[in-house]
């Protein structure tokens, strides 16, 4: 479904991604784990078109999407949930969700999807009229995910959904990710919390300083001594 081959990205003189290749099949949850500065977020941003690759290509459903503008990639069903809970703080929950459906013109469909989001994230229904900025961290994470789901994506790029959340909330967020996946959305998950990520992923890649150093089934990686030492806290 998603095929990344030999991807290079530069920030000025900094070579952030040095030839990354990996793939994701339909229906999978693929985790990308790695420490700070490994290039995980850069990779997601490049796939979703927020950054431009200097070399290599990204293809999605047998179509090359690298080089296309972000909005075109969104309209193909690839949605990027950026890290740090990027909601629109001065818009209400409903308005945030509507922004998620920006590309949909059918009002009825928007209303329908919104209702579905409220069913899945009941806490958002209670906060309907509240400004996004006044929500708690966990609620904001729910909101960004709900906003992403408004377009009914086929592939979701999730960047650090557990960032800054209490352990209870992290579990809840990961439960929701699994649920989303069961309903047919493939997921590329970037996480620092390797334990959680590997526990729900089918396969995983380890990214270190711009290169993929390890890959395999999530369960295998969990038992890999290198991974245990570096990411699972020995």
């Amino acid at each position: 479904m998603l095929n990344v081959s030999n991807l290079h990205v530069h920030y000025g003189a900094i070579h952030a991604l040095k030839g990354v290749s990996f793939n994701l099949e339909e229906g999978e949850i693929v985790a990308l784990i790695g420490s700070n500065g490994a290039g995980k977020s850069t990779l997601l941003k490049t796939i979703s078109g927020l950054l431009e690759a200097t070399e290599g290509e990204v293809s999605y459903q047998d179509e090359i999407i690298s080089g296309q503008p972000a909005q075109d990639i969104v309209s193909k069903g690839v949605i990027h949930i950026p890290e740090g809970r990027k909601i629109f703080p001065k818009m209400t929950v409903v308005e945030n969700l509507e922004m998620g459906a920006f590309l949909l013109r059918d009002r009825r469909l928007v209303a329908e999807r919104m209702e579905a989001m409220f069913e899945r994230f009941p806490v958002l229904r209670d906060r309907k009229k509240q400004l996004g900025g006044t929500l708690s961290g966990g609620e904001q994470q729910m909101l960004t995910m709900a906003r992403g789901l408004m377009t009914n994506p086929k592939l979701m790029l999730l960047d650090e959904p557990s960032m800054g959340l209490a352990p209870v909330l992290v579990e809840k967020v990961f439960d929701i990710i699994e649920e989303i996946n069961e309903q047919g959305t493939s997921i590329l998950l970037v996480e620092q919390n390797a334990q959680m990520a590997l526990s729900i992923a089918d396969r995983a890649y380890v990214l270190e300083t711009g290169r993929i150093t390890l890959s395999g089934d999530a369960l295998d990686l969990m038992e890999n001594p290198l991974v245990i030492e570096a990411y699972l806290g020995g």
């Binding site: 972000a70 309209s75 950026p82 990027k86 590309l103």
Partner: peptide
């Protein structure tokens, strides 16, 4: 409000 989030929701930023 947030250019990155806007782009991620499919708004043509430029």
């Amino acid at each position: 409000e947030d250019p990155i989030a806007a782009q991620a929701t499919g708004i043509n930023l430029r």
